[in-house]
Amino acid sequence: MTAIEARPGIVLDAEERRRLRGARAERIGRWVLPVAIMILAIGLWDRICVWNEIPQYILPRPGVVLQTLWKDAVLLFGSLMVTLRITFLGLALAVAGGVGLAVLFTQSKWVEMSLFPFAIVLQVTPIVAIFPLINIYVDNQTAKLLLCSWIVAFFPILSNTTLGLNSVDRNLIDLFKLNGATRWQQLWHLRLPAAMPYFLGGLKIAGGLSLIGAVVAEFVAGAGGQSSGLASRIIEAGYRLNAPRLFAALFLISVTGIVIFLVLTLVSHLILRRWHESALRQER
């Protein structure tokens, strides 16, 4: 960890003092600036509503959104739980599928060559365009949403993990061969740990994507009135011109996305902090 405070008894020249001041200001600014801008923006939003006398069904004031969040808490958080369930199940399946396929790919170049294009096709086709098909072929509502969330989330995990499994030091592979390591030992003791930073990078992207996948799936499915997740709350609120609730639901979704990202970042940091460059602080 970089020391921000000067050690007592050490005389600093002007350049070092400036550097120290800069580091201190940066540390504080990193947190204070975004929060300040956020508060400013919300304040401005509130003022604009008042100054222009914008009706609540067009743009509610932030206070009203907060009130609605409290008033409709049971409804909204109930829906959030539905969406979260799909999100996490989708993410879990994406991890299993992505890592599983990546391991399969590294076992045989032929399998990778044959299957990777299909993964790309699945990735580049917009999920909204695929969903009507899923809607026809899959009956179970949960399965539909899960499939959707999975398709969106699994690709970054697959491609990152594949890259990681293949980015092993050639000399280490020789060392394993020299010591008569089996394929399984090579995978377990060498390739999987080496792929960990890549996998975690993919996981961070996939966490956000699985939420997006779940919400988009609910949107498309919810148009038929079959879903009870946050997306259907938004559609419903839109029909009824209930803008405060719409904003409250939107707020919940983005907070959820942020929390997922932060949690995954923390997990990644905890796993990598002892060895990987990305988790180390810059030292001069």
């Binding site: 000399n171 280490l172 060392l175 394993f176 010591n179 390591a181 030992q185 740990p193 060895w275």
Partner: peptide, 20 residues
């Protein structure tokens, strides 16, 4: 040196024996 970056010194030296 070609060490396993995720393993400590002891585990790195243990590796060849561990594989056996």
């Amino acid at each position: 040196p070609t060490l396993l970056p995720w393993a400590n010194v002891f585990d790195n030296i243990w590796l060849p024996l561990r594989l056996k």
